[in-house]
């Protein structure tokens, strides 16, 4: 019971991080593709909620190390390098965005901030995906003899990078759909719509690449799917949404397309969850995989974690709603 509540909050935090933090990253990627002119729009859209969007990741980390310490320590040890790169991305991006926004003098330095902002907007989700890919793939070898086998091979492969790329594309898609509703300029709006459609199409292609690369790296992802009808249902549903999503984008139905895009992303995360539940890290090489159940912390700890999460949410969620309403509500009324 306690463990289910904690898993629920873990999933909840991951979903919120992807939906909000992910869209922030995507906005940076979008800038990289679309050029400079959207910068103000993007900065305005993410400014007030910027910090809050990224706290979700800290919740994920805290839930992991308090509730499932063995999962946290295993990731930290064998995926040290991709985690490190992701952290550099987080630092560069977080600081570049704020420094750019608050620099008292606007001059050539803006280009530097912007360059770092865009590059790290790609780097961070790419390596976030690489880490997820490595957790699924099962190439972690606790008895590895060489540095390469222990600390590089688990993540430096086609599959992990395909998941990374998929992550980048997915986040960019979220950002494009989100920004459609943030702009009043018709020309810009149609540019975002066009971008959203294109990126959505490339998400399908990269999604296929994930499956192909899995086969190439000896992971029969399809077989894993066969074992979980929930995972299949999630993927089928995510695909079934596509035509409706496209239609809503075409007619720029802002709320509907945002909802459908979010639903699609949530379904993909759920598919990932179900395809390996209760496993969290496929370790590989004959070593037992780490599941929620064999890595769980003692009962007393889980109870305190649940209290903190439940009471914390009762404080955070209404306050977060107030924040969103204060800064996002107005624009809907303006239309």
């Amino acid at each position: 019971m306690l463990i289910d509540i904690v898993i629920f909050f873990l999933g909840f935090s991951i979903i919120f991080y992807v939906l909000f933090g992910g869209a922030d990253f995507g906005a940076g990627v979008l800038e990289l593709i679309s050029g400079e002119e959207d910068r103000e729009k993007i900065a305005d859209a993410i400014g007030p909620v910027w910090e809050a969007n990224h706290v979700w990741l800290i919740l994920v980390v805290v839930i992991l190390f308090m509730g499932f310490p063995k999962i946290y320590s295993t990731m930290s040890l064998y995926l040290h390098i991709p985690l490190l790169i992701m952290l550099v991305g987080i630092v560069l991006r977080g600081t570049a965005f704020t420094y750019m926004h608050y620099d008292a003098i606007k001059d050539k330095s803006n280009h530097v901030y912007n360059f770092i902002f865009k590059i790290s907007s790609v780097l961070t989700p790419l390596f976030l995906g690489v880490i997820v890919g490595a957790m699924v793939l099962g190439k972690i070898d606790p008895n590895a003899e060489t540095f390469y086998a222990a600390f590089i091979a688990p993540w430096f492969n086609l599959f992990a990078f395909s998941v990374g790329l998929f992550c980048v594309v997915l986040f960019t898609f979220l950002a494009a759909v989100y920004l459609i509703g943030e702009t009043k300029n018709e020309q810009q709006k149609s540019a975002f719509i066009k971008a959203a459609k294109r990126i959505n199409a490339s998400a399908v292609v990269v999604g296929a690449l994930v499956f192909i690369s899995a086969q190439m790296n000896d992971l029969s992802l399809l077989e894993l799917f066969y074992e979980s009808w929930l995972a299949i249902a999630a993927v089928v549903l995510a695909t079934a949404i596509l035509p409706f999503l496209w239609k809503s984008l075409h007619y720029s139905q802002i709320v509907l397309s945002r909802g459908l895009a979010a639903a699609q992303v949530i379904l993909i995360i759920l598919a990932w969850f179900w395809v390996q539940y209760p496993v969290v890290i496929n370790v590989g090489y004959g070593t037992e995989s780490l599941t929620f159940y064999n890595a769980v912390a003692p009962q007393a700890t889980m109870l305190q974690l649940v209290w903190a999460l439940v009471i914390g949410s009762c404080i955070i969620l209404p306050f977060l709603y107030f924040l969103m309403k204060t800064f996002k509500g107005k624009q809907f009324i303006d239309k």
Partner: peptide
């Protein structure tokens, strides 16, 4: 240590969020 001293961090998460 995670399961033992994680509790203040779980509350810190809320505080930092707020």
């Amino acid at each position: 240590a995670g399961p033992i001293f994680g509790m203040p961090f779980s509350w810190e998460g809320t505080a930092f969020f707020v």
